[in-house]
């Protein structure tokens, strides 16, 4: 039985063959018809990834700079948070966010809804933020100490040195790792499906559930993989390009 299905599935990829023979619509036609639904589902993945990455960048910047703070308790706390969540599986963090956070927040007596998608963004962002934190720490530490010294001798405060002199030089160094991380965030967004957020995997599941056709599993999920590939591969190429370009002293 299993071996028979394995034999049939690849054939289903070819237009107008296999399942189409018994009168059902061919796989390629269904994929074509479902493309708008899949695209709108994928849009949700993109939105989640962008929002999670923005949040992760802000959190990660704060915690990453915290790892270099002169204030020892704050520095240790940031170090611990970074390494704790860098080693936490994103799905576990996601479940924590889903199950432990309330469905609404009360701020100054106003009830704000806290929908599942927002929790999912937070869940993904936490894991990503821990990675951003390390990227920031590494980049800041790669700036030659002479930059700090000359800034100090000119009277810049530590805060001014970080924001005006060190971080602007770091941006370029951080970009490849940051983009790499973003691609990871994108391919992690289907995790949100498991915790009930309606994204491209849920869309595919619903479309398949209406058909009850095993021969569609491979084409549909293969099609999803292509979507992710088409979105992430250019990011990877661009990252490689940025990495290979020697970092000049010009911005």
């Amino acid at each position: 039985m299993l071996s028979a299905r394995a034999f049939v599935l690849p054939a289903a990829l070819l237009p107008g063959t296999a399942a189409a023979a018994d009168g059902a619509a061919p796989a390629w036609l269904l994929l074509w018809q479902w493309t708008p639904a899949i695209a709108s589902g994928f849009l949700m993945n993109v939105l989640i990834s962008v929002a999670a990455m923005l949040l992760a960048s802000l959190l990660g910047l704060a915690v990453g700079l915290g790892q270099l703070s002169g204030l020892a308790p704050w520095r240790r706390a940031c170090h611990f948070l970074t390494h704790f969540f860098r080693n936490a599986p994103w799905l576990v963090v996601l479940f924590y966010c889903m199950l432990l956070l309330p469905f609404q927040l009360r701020l100054f007596g106003v009830a704000l809804p806290f929908p599942d998608w927002a929790k999912a963004i937070l869940g993904i962002a936490i894991g990503a933020a821990a990675n951003v934190s390390e990227i920031v720490r590494g980049a800041v530490q790669s700036i030659p100490p002479g930059q700090w010294e000359s800034a100090e001798s000119l009277g810049f405060s530590r805060r001014q040195t970080v924001w005006l002199i060190v971080l602007p030089q770091c941006l370029r160094r951080m970009l490849p790792s940051w983009m790499n991380l973003y691609a990871l965030v994108v391919v992690s967004t289907p995790l949100c499906n498991i915790v009930g957020v309606h994204e491209v995997m849920s869309v595919a599941g619903e479309l398949l559930a209406n058909q009850d056709r095993h021969d569609l599993l491979l084409p549909v999920y293969g099609y999803l993989l292509l979507w992710f590939f088409a979105y992430c591969y250019p990011i990877a190429r661009l990252t490689r390009l940025l990495e290979r370009r020697p970092a000049p002293s010009l911005p």
Binding site: P144, G146, Q147, S150, E152, S153, G155, S249
Partner: peptide, 15 residues
């Protein structure tokens, strides 16, 4: 810092 200026061997300009 206002009274004392310092110039370093490695220049340390902001690139």
């Amino acid at each position: 810092r206002r009274k004392v200026g310092m110039v370093f061997q490695q220049y340390n300009l902001f690139p």
